[in-house]
């Protein structure tokens, strides 16, 4: 299959000056970071203080792309490790509630994580340890971004396009966009702003999605659902 022959989503639509939305896709390549693995809570606290912002981002935000069954209980690696390796339920809950997108940047998030870890260290009478084969490994990832050659040329076609996207496309435009764009919003919202009245109901709908605690499949379904609701029910073709 020639990449250039991929179907371009362009149906008849009202003429507009707005640049069509370019659907991109991405793939991660994950590597082990230069931090040594942490085997106890004190080491975790020290490594969190020293690891790169990319590493923090990976353990909080890129987990959604990882092969696993939906695990609604925990969404970031620190909470998962606290629960499964240290068996510290209280710490796991305190870490789990952190929404990385509510912080202005990764450094603010880092401060909060360290604060929680310090609090927990001061509360416990011993330093919780993991078994030797359950150490916490710090990772980071490179996001390789590529074009799909698919465009969306009107807000009315957004629902169908999102329904057909790969989950990694959705991740790129919905999650990763918040790290990348100056507005710290998803790419759809930024694009819809240019459509003025035609975009406003969808922007409002998107803003109500509590996406961080969803899997990408759930997000895909939820996004289509809110678009349908915002546009009066049925399909928005």
């Amino acid at each position: 299959m020639d990449v250039k022959t991929r179907k371009i989503v362009k149906r008849n639509s009202s003429k507009t000056e707005v640049t069509p939305f370019q659907i991109k896709d991405c793939a991660l390549i994950v590597r082990i970071s230069d931090q040594l693995p942490a085997i106890n809570l004190r080491e975790l606290r020290e490594r969190v203080g020293n690891c790169s912002a990319d590493s923090l981002y990976h353990h909080f935000c890129e987990t959604v792309l990882r092969p696993s069954f939906d695990d609604p209980e925990f969404h970031n690696d620190f909470a998962i490790w606290a629960r499964r390796a240290l068996h510290d339920h209280v710490l796991a809950e305190k870490l789990e509630i952190l929404d990385p997108y509510s912080f202005s940047d990764m450094e603010e998030l880092r401060k909060e994580v360290i604060d929680i870890l310090d609090d927990r260290l001061s509360e416990t009478y011993y330093v919780p340890w993991a078994l030797h084969d359950r150490a916490f490994y710090f990772h980071s990832a490179t996001t390789v971004v590529f074009d799909t050659n698919i465009t969306i040329d009107s807000p009315e076609k957004l629902c169908d396009a999102i329904a057909e996207m790969t989950t990694s496309s959705l991740y790129y435009h919905f999650w990763e966009a918040r790290r990348r764009t100056p507005e710290r919003r998803d790419d759809f919202t930024v694009w819809l702003k240019a459509w003025n009245d035609r975009g406003i109901p969808l922007i409002k709908a998107f803003s109500q999605i509590d996406f961080y605690f969803m899997s990408l499949r759930e997000l895909q379904q939820r996004t289509c659902q809110v678009i349908r609701e915002a546009t009066g029910g049925g399909s928005v073709k």
């Binding site: 793939a27 390549i29 981002y57 490179t142 390789v144 971004v145 590529f146």
Partner: peptide, 17 residues
Amino acid sequence: TLMTGLRRGFSSRLVVA
């Protein structure tokens, strides 16, 4: 993806197209 990174260098984001 890995080969792309090896050719282009690894940073947090790599746009190939």
